[in-house]
Design a protein around this nucleic acid. Structure first.
Lengths: 247, 247
DNA sequence: GGCCTAGGTAACAGCGTGTAACAGAACCCC
DNA sequence: GGGGTTCTGTTACACGCTGTTACCTAGGCC
């Protein structure tokens, strides 16, 4: 059972880093690239299951690179683009991209599409890939990422809202690491939904969100065992997290 | 990489010429045909990668021709039609057309679809690729595309309306991929019925339609397992779809 | 203790989604 | 063609989600 290896190709270091980190948090091996030559290095040095390719790469069109890659190899490609105009979309499909996502995109959308493309690829080849991490256990709790269900130590189901789920995921991915509100916010931008509060000021939203999550997963929200406050810093997820995956 | 060879089948010389020229301008080898016999000539004399087939061909239905071709060869077919009446559309899918476009169509859309079909065909040609897809299984359900019947896990029949069927097909074709209302609407324009709501604003129609479909194919419509909502994004068909064909 | 600051949280508002009800269109059967 | 039935988009309302605000408490420092 192999973990899928993805190339993240973007010439903007920040985007590249964020994407890479995000994909790694979601169970993939993500390899950052910033040019066609680094892509070829990676292709030459090992298996690559999927390429996430920015449409604009320096002064060259990713589309052209995609076309060249296609003519040589059979690696699935998802084009990522800030250009949403339809002719660009068309151009993407023309060169045989397996999918096309316009920036700014919802990271979950990206994740879903990545999985869908890998899934299809798996179907039509012998590639096996690990389904992304699907269950987390922490302090008697159980989170099923696939069904998005949270089960308490006593066995009853707790329904979390979307943002609460996203927040929980952030903590599950960073146990015992104190996170600032800033960091949490950035992480939510990536794992949660990326549209609204990206710009700087989290306000008190994180505090309120933490409070709500506490209300659902703490035995006594007044005395938090899991989501501890670090005054002047932020919050820590203070218990061990055991990660498992299906089959 | 060889240039795809397409047959353009239309008995109207003007349409045929326009289409042929357009496709040639876009890098294809387009071979005009005006009857079933000329199609067979072409099929006999060399490789054909795709057939663009007009639904009305003289006094005969292109659908019938499609059906005959299907039973003999494994060439992808896109049906092109001025007939928007639904039974014609359905008939197109029944005979296993890979896609169906209603006139008047956006040439770029046609182009994109041609390329998509060719791409699919190329991808899966190494496997056994059969076209007469006729049944889909998903989460215990069973959809018979040929008879347009939906059977529940418990075995009872559910009758879907035309639009509901079209919506289901859209999701069956895009499992695990979050679709925006916009995308669903566009897809319905093409696979469902193309006349009315093409222009931009889906309003709440998609939501209502999804709700109605849920009411029919979800065990508990209040807790959707198949048609999941992605707040701020759209809807996802959240189970695997297994495609089978008869014979 | 007095003061200041950080964090907890109730209340509110805005927004997205679910859905019942309605009306017009399409269809069907006679 | 007429009348009933089904389909389907629109509308309106309810409800849950989520960020903001305001107020309060807790902690830290003098």
């Amino acid at each position: 059972m192999t973990i899928p290896r993805l190339l993240v190709v973007d010439d903007d270091a920040e985007t590249r880093g964020m994407l890479t980190q995000f994909l790694r948090q979601n169970g993939f091996i993500a390899l950052p690239c910033d040019s066609e030559s680094t892509i070829r290095d990676q292709l030459g040095s090992g298996r690559v299951d999927l390429i996430l390719l920015d449409v604009m790469l320096g002064d060259e069109y990713g589309v052209d690179i995609c076309k060249r890659l296609r003519s040589e190899q059979d690696v699935p490609v998802i084009l990522v683009s800030a250009l949403s105009a339809d002719h660009h979309r068309m151009a993407g499909y023309e060169v045989g991209a397996d999918d096309y996502i316009a920036k700014p995109f919802n990271p979950n959308l990206l994740l879903a599409r990545v999985k869908a493309v890998l899934h299809r690829a798996k179907r039509s080849s012998s590639l096996t890939y690990r389904r992304s991490i699907s269950t987390f256990r922490f302090g008697g709790w159980w989170y099923d990422a696939k069904r998005d269900e949270v089960t308490s130590p006593q066995g009853y189901q707790v329904s979390l809202s979307r943002k609460e789920t996203a927040l929980l995921k952030v903590f599950l991915g960073n146990p015992h690491i104190p996170l600032t509100r800033e960091e949490i916010n950035t992480a939510l931008d990536v794992t949660g939904d990326g549209q609204d509060l990206g710009s700087g000021n989290p306000g008190r939203a994180i505090d309120v969100l933490v409070g709500r999550l506490r209300g659902k997963i703490e035995a006594d929200p007044k005395i938090p065992e899991l989501l501890r406050t670090q005054r002047g810093v932020g919050y820590v997820f203070a218990v061990d997290v055991v990660v498992e995956d299906d089959q």
